[in-house]
């Protein structure tokens, strides 16, 4: 039994955290510090292995200067968006 990182495995959450983070020139550690989580949590989040809570999603949106629908989606993002 490995810990299931996603809150709901059946409903994956897609995200563009890595794209937006690297576009802002932020490292995982910097984003983690900005939103108050462990740096590995950012990694799990970016790989889709963990779905954030609403409060964490809001903090990430603020740190990345973006809106939540631009960062998280229950459908895959189209390439180039």
């Amino acid at each position: 039994m490995l810990y299931r990182m996603s809150r709901q495995k059946e409903d994956p959450v897609f995200n563009r955290v890595e794209d937006l983070r690297t576009a802002k020139g932020m490292s995982r550690q910097q984003l983690a510090d900005a939103v108050g989580v462990h740096y590995q949590t950012i990694g799990y989040l970016e790989r889709g292995e963990y779905s954030p809570s609403l409060i964490l999603a809001l903090k990430i949106a603020k740190a990345l200067d973006a809106e939540i629908p631009d960062i998280f989606s229950i459908k895959p993002f189209r390439k180039g968006t």
């Binding site: 039994m1 990182m5 108050g36 989580v37 462990h38 949590t41 963990y50 809570s53």
Partner: peptide, 16 residues
């Protein structure tokens, strides 16, 4: 001292 993900892990761990 734990973020939400680590807290989840720790709590699941203690239940087991």
């Amino acid at each position: 001292l734990l973020d939400e993900r680590l807290l989840d892990i720790r709590n699941q761990n203690y239940v087991t």
